[in-house]
Amino acid sequence: MTELLVALLSAALISHYLLRLTLPGDPQLERRRVHALGLATMLLVAFSGLSACLLDKFVLQPLALGALWLFAYVPVVILLSQPLLNALARRVPALPFDGLWVPLLASTGVLSVALLGPGNAGELIYSLGIGPAFWLVLSLFNDLRQRIDENDIPRPFNGLPVDLLSAGLLAVAFLGLNAMIKP
Rank of each mutant, 00 (worst) to 15 (best):
A87M: 12
L88R: 04
L88W: 04
A89V: 00
A89F: 01
R90T: 00
R90Q: 14
R91P: 06
R91K: 13
R91N: 00
R91S: 13
R91D: 09
R91C: 05
R91L: 15
V92I: 13
P93T: 06
P93V: 13
P93K: 02
P93W: 05
A94R: 06
A94E: 11
A94D: 08
A94S: 12
A94G: 09
A94F: 03
L95V: 00
L95G: 10
L95M: 07
L95I: 04
L95W: 04
P96H: 06
P96W: 01
P96R: 09
F97E: 07
F97P: 11
D98P: 01
D98K: 08
G99F: 10
G99K: 05
G99M: 14
G99D: 15
G99W: 04
L100F: 05
L100A: 06
L100T: 06
L100K: 02
L100M: 05
L100R: 02
W101I: 10
W101T: 14
W101M: 13
V102T: 15
P103S: 11
P103I: 03
P103E: 06
P103A: 08
P103G: 11
P103Q: 03
P103L: 10
L104M: 13
L104A: 11
L104K: 01
L105K: 01
L105F: 08
A106W: 04
A106H: 03
S107R: 01
S107C: 15
S107I: 02
S107H: 02
T108S: 13
T108G: 14
T108F: 00
T108V: 14
T108D: 09
G109W: 02
G109H: 01
G109K: 02
V110I: 15
V110G: 10
L111A: 14
L111S: 12
S112G: 15
S112I: 02
S112E: 02
S112Y: 04
V113Q: 12
V113A: 12
V113C: 08
V113N: 07
V113W: 04
V113F: 14
V113Y: 05
A114D: 10
A114E: 05
A114R: 04
A114S: 15
L115R: 07
L115F: 09
L115T: 14
L116K: 00
L116G: 13
L116Q: 03
